[in-house]
Simulated scan of single mutants.
Amino acid sequence: MDNIAALNAFVVTAETRSFVRAGEALGVSASAVGKTIVRLEKRLGVRLFHRNTRSIAITAEGAMFLERCRRIFGELEAAEQELSQSIAAPRGRLRVSLPLAGMLFMPTITKFMQAFPEVTIDLDFTDRLVDVIEEGFDAVVRTGEISDSRLMMRSLGRFSHRIVGSAEYFARFGTPEKPQDLSAHICLHHKYPSSGKLERWPLRHDGKSGKLDLPISSMASTLEPLISMAEAGLGVACLPLFTVGQQIAEGRLVSVLADHVEDAGEFRILWPSSRQLSPKIQALVRFMAENLFRS
């Protein structure tokens, strides 16, 4: 058991890149974690981490050992789950990464928490490309194509975009009849926080797809401010339908040019392929797939 505890301390340290954060995760002091790693290195006869006063970094030998340790813990977890699967209920900590627009998932996440009170949700909101395995996530939700062979995935549903503005705005500036008309409008853009680039509005114009140069009046790195600005009559925005469906239904926003919006995005949930799909992840995947885009 001492050996297993030492291996666990090593894995958590490697994933957090910090003795302090590893200690917090394990419920012990950073000093205790450091001493455990030193004893493990002495027993193995290799250095697992490079250390300085500011940070630690895993060595090549440590990286090789880390993959073996993950397989060991994966086998242990699979053995435990195999014994208890028939009676297991979703429970335990579930660390999930959501995009910044994930705040708009909160009604669904809240219902999941109410349905599975024994699951403790740890949510991380970011649009950067996280390393699911290295950073210790149980699951992540993202759009776009995923090419990491270490991950399993399932679609949570597809979504389309809408060009929206308030009724008051269109009364003042006119309703665009074709995409080119947007050049005379106040356009509110979403900016990718990771790159600073503006998200392209997926419009078909002149019978074909392609980038349409639009005025850049205001921009934001999250969607909520764009929704607020559009509702306030400050311009038009291109937003996922699931984020503005209620505002459109209630008349707070008006959708225009719907016949010219061509794309459909897709949300996917991903988890490490080395881990058996545990009851808590099974429950999350199923619940999100059934409820995220329910109208």
Rank of each mutant, 00 (worst) to 15 (best):
V244G: 02
V244T: 04
V244E: 03
V244I: 04
Q246N: 05
Q246P: 07
Q247A: 02
I248L: 15
I248R: 07
A249H: 14
A249S: 15
A249F: 10
A249L: 14
E250F: 11
E250W: 06
E250L: 14
G251Y: 04
G251N: 05
G251M: 00
R252C: 02
R252M: 01
R252I: 00
R252K: 14
L253C: 06
L253M: 03
L253F: 02
V254K: 14
V254L: 14
V254T: 15
S255T: 04
S255V: 03
S255N: 12
V256M: 08
V256Y: 08
L257C: 04
L257T: 07
L257Q: 11
L257V: 07
A258I: 13
A258S: 15
A258R: 15
A258T: 15
A258L: 12
A258C: 13
A258E: 15
D259Q: 15
D259W: 13
D259A: 14
H260Q: 02
V261C: 06
V261D: 07
V261Q: 05
E262M: 11
E262H: 13
D263P: 04
D263E: 14
A264N: 10
A264Y: 08
A264I: 05
A264D: 10
G265T: 06
G265W: 06
G265P: 05
G265F: 10
E266G: 00
E266C: 01
E266M: 02
R268Q: 13
R268F: 13
R268D: 10
R268L: 13
I269R: 07
I269Q: 08
I269W: 06
I269L: 13
I269Y: 07
L270P: 08
L270M: 12
L270G: 08
L270E: 11
W271H: 01
W271M: 10
W271G: 06
W271E: 10
P272H: 06
S273V: 05
S273R: 11
S273H: 04
S274K: 08
S274G: 01
Q276H: 05
Q276G: 04
L277T: 13
L277Y: 11
L277A: 11
S278W: 05
S278N: 02
S278Y: 03
P279A: 01
P279L: 00
K280P: 03
K280G: 01
I281L: 15
I281Y: 10
A283H: 02
A283Y: 02
